[in-house]
């Protein structure tokens, strides 16, 4: 069943953490809430969980209005950032906890808990207390515990941010495969764009308690609608432009060709990898004469910084694969890119 958040507003004193926010989480999908610190990701997750009560709005699961259902009866699984396993209970007892609350029989409880421990590959740790396990193991147990009572929704609040890089990478794919195996509707909060791009079916970019843009990872990357989203997801050159007399985009001394209308936009986005460099004109739709101001060698990648001769106050970042070309500081080059690589941003 889809989860619908409707016109939700949440205030803390005079801070508005969520403002009139509406959103649909499709059944069986993994949705990431992405955004900078303080934008309201945790608040939205907690409102959905029922741990916070919004002043206005509704939470609907399918046709059911959950707004007045206490959190303990929503049957949602939650994984917190800090592992939050009960320190006085073993891994197995932790996983069984939700089943005890639901009055499952002892035998079923045990079977289900062991099944869940198998799922996270920690059957051999069943008798251990949380303090005897590593952070990654604890977080796996926490996932098993959240999934054991067959929740209708799984909520994860930055589940990986307390872990080190290697464990994080492992758990990313593990969470994703478990989620797909059960087809459980899942919401994950993160401020790591790579995590969101890798794992999500749908990304919700939040800013100041409002939704900035919703879409599949590829959509958001290829078609960011705002400067904020473009800047937040992936690296991007933001070109300050103005509309010239002909109503076209004027970048410094030069006119740029774009697809579609400008609609009064003053910023164009250009991904660093969409630019190719050449010494001679290469017949591209857009071509800017530039001076190389800096280069950074990063193994398989090179970052090149260019100053367009026609707009010397704006620098362009270019990302090149391989070492076929090796520009040097001071070189004069042409930066080429197609019209459809220019993103019109609000």
């Amino acid at each position: 069943m889809d989860l619908d958040v409707k016109n939700t507003t949440k205030r803390y004193g005079h801070v508005t953490a969520l403002s009139d926010l509406s959103l649909t989480i499709p059944a069986g999908s993994l949705t990431c809430f992405l955004g900078p610190s303080g934008c309201g990701k945790t608040t939205l997750l907690r409102v959905i969980a029922g741990l916070e009560t919004a002043e206005e709005g509704q939470i609907l699961l399918g046709e059911d209005d959950l707004s007045d259902t206490p959190p303990s009866e929503r049957n949602f699984g939650v994984v917190f950032q800090s592992y939050s396993l009960f320190p006085n209970l073993t891994a197995l007892r932790n996983v069984q906890y939700g089943l005890e609350c639901r009055g499952w029989s002892r035998g079923r409880r045990r079977a289900r808990a062991e099944e869940m421990l198998d799922l996270v590959h920690l059957r051999d740790q069943a008798g251990k207390l949380p303090e005897q396990m590593s952070g990654g193991q604890q977080q796996r147990i926490a996932i098993a515990r959240a999934l054991a009572p067959e929740p209708s929704l799984l909520l994860l609040d930055e589940p990986l941010s307390a872990l080190d890089a290697k464990v994080r990478a492992e758990l990313r794919s593990e969470i994703r495969s478990i989620q797909q195996k059960f087809g459980i509707t899942t919401i994950m909060v993160t401020h790591d764009q790579n995590e969101a791009l890798e794992m999500a079916d749908q990304i919700v970019v939040l800013r100041d308690g409002q939704i900035e843009q919703v879409g599949a990872p590829r959509d958001l990357y290829a078609h960011p609608q705002t400067r904020f989203v473009a800047d937040f997801i992936g690296a991007i050159n933001l070109l300050d432009i103005s509309a010239n007399a002909a109503g076209r985009a004027q970048f410094g001394m030069q006119e740029l060709h774009i697809e579609g209308p400008l609609n009064g936009a003053t910023t164009l986005g250009l991904r660093p990898e969409a630019i190719t460099l050449s010494d001679e004109p290469a017949g591209a739709e857009n071509s800017l004469a530039c001076t190389v101001t800096n280069t950074r060698f990063m193994g398989n990648l090179q970052h090149v910084e260019l100053r367009p001769n026609g707009a010397p106050d704006q620098l362009l970042q270019v990302e090149m694969n391989g070492l076929a070309q090796t520009p040097r500081r001071g070189d004069q080059l042409l930066a080429n890119f197609p019209a459809n690589a220019l993103l019109v941003l609000r």
Partner: peptide, 24 residues
């Protein structure tokens, strides 16, 4: 967080008290 974890797993206030808070 322990309270919240217990609540989300379906535990009542009393269960949380006796199973989590008091043992700690």
């Amino acid at each position: 967080t322990f309270d919240e974890a217990s609540t989300m797993l379906g535990g009542s206030a009393l269960r949380t008290l006796f199973k989590v808070t008091l043992p700690l």
